[in-house]
């Protein structure tokens, strides 16, 4: 008697999206804690914040904003390229996004280093001689842009991973039954049937010695047969990139444009 079993490791597109959005919510709340502190201290020390913000270089901030906004565009383009089955363009766009992320970090590095060279960093003697509101402003500035920068770095690492994933996509590996799931097939064999029930492929007989059956399929979805499930990981990384971008959109005016 034969029966059908489900593929192990089912892909639930909506489920993975739901999980990702919940994770993004935690990121928003994580930064929300810092924005809360910013709001409280800015209302405590409006004058000091105004004066301290004058120290920041609006030009560098603006350039960085443009860089991140453009990187969000290229991120979206790489996903759109996948939807159109254009692997090469998708890979190029991922790389461009990584490069924009890197450019942002380089700018940030020089900006921080200039501040530190001027003696402006947490607990510096120069800063401690200033009013308390300025100490807090720069404490928040280094903390918030630092944690944001860490997120950009993580995003870049994830994107490099995505680059290789998209590159290797045609060699998708499907574990039909792996490990413990295999015992349900004990004593039988696995087979792949076409819609008419004609076997395309049969496995060895399955007994205690077999650990897993892995089928490697080669395909690259074309536009007409695009399966969104294949790219949910890239889309999730894209969502992450966008949230990091959006957080910067709030950081920029709150630190650079309040003079």
């Amino acid at each position: 008697m034969s029966q059908s079993v489900a593929l192990v490791g089912h892909r639930d597109y909506t489920g993975s999206k739901l999980g990702m959005w919940m994770f993004l919510a935690t990121e928003v709340i994580l930064f929300g804690g810092m924005f809360l502190l910013y709001a409280a201290y800015r209302s405590d020390y409006p004058g000091d914040f105004h004066a301290a913000a004058g120290e920041l270089n609006t030009l560098v901030g603006t350039v960085n904003t443009l860089i991140l906004l453009t990187s969000s565009l290229t991120m979206a383009l790489s996903i759109a390229a996948c939807h159109h089955g254009n692997r090469k363009l998708a890979m190029i766009m991922i790389l461009v996004t990584v490069i924009f992320g890197g450019a942002f970090m380089v700018n940030k590095y020089f900006e921080w280093m200039t501040k530190i060279a001027h003696g402006i960093y947490p607990s510096s003697e120069f800063l401690l001689a200033h009013p308390k509101g300025e100490i807090i402003f720069f404490g928040l500035y280094f903390t918030m842009t630092g944690i944001h920068g860490l997120h950009v770095l993580i995003g870049m690492v994830l994107l490099v991973g995505m680059f290789f994933k998209v590159m290797n996509q045609p060699n998708a590996q499907v574990s039909f039954l792996s490990g413990h799931g295999l015992q349900r097939a004990d004593g039988g064999r696995l087979a792949m049937l076409d819609p008419n029930g004609v076997p395309l492929w049969k496995s060895e007989p399955i007994d205690d010695t077999m650990e897993r059956v892995v089928v490697k399929t080669k395909y690259w979805p074309v536009k007409s047969r695009f399966r969104v499930e294949d790219f949910s990981l890239l889309e999730n990384v894209g969502l992450y990139w966008h949230i990091v971008d959006i957080i910067w959109i709030f950081l920029f005016p709150l630190f650079y444009l309040i003079t």
Binding site: M22, A25, T26, E27, I29, L30, F31, G32, G33, M34, L37, Y41, D44, Y45, Y121, P122, S123, L128, P131, K132, G133, I135, I136, G139, L140, F142, T143, I147
Partner: peptide
Amino acid sequence: VVATPVLGITLVLLILERFFGIGVFDPAKG
């Protein structure tokens, strides 16, 4: 999901306070 990140960032700020003295919870620095 909704509450834990607040603790996360609070503790991170405390760690940064200890290592770098960012001042956000230290009355001596405002």
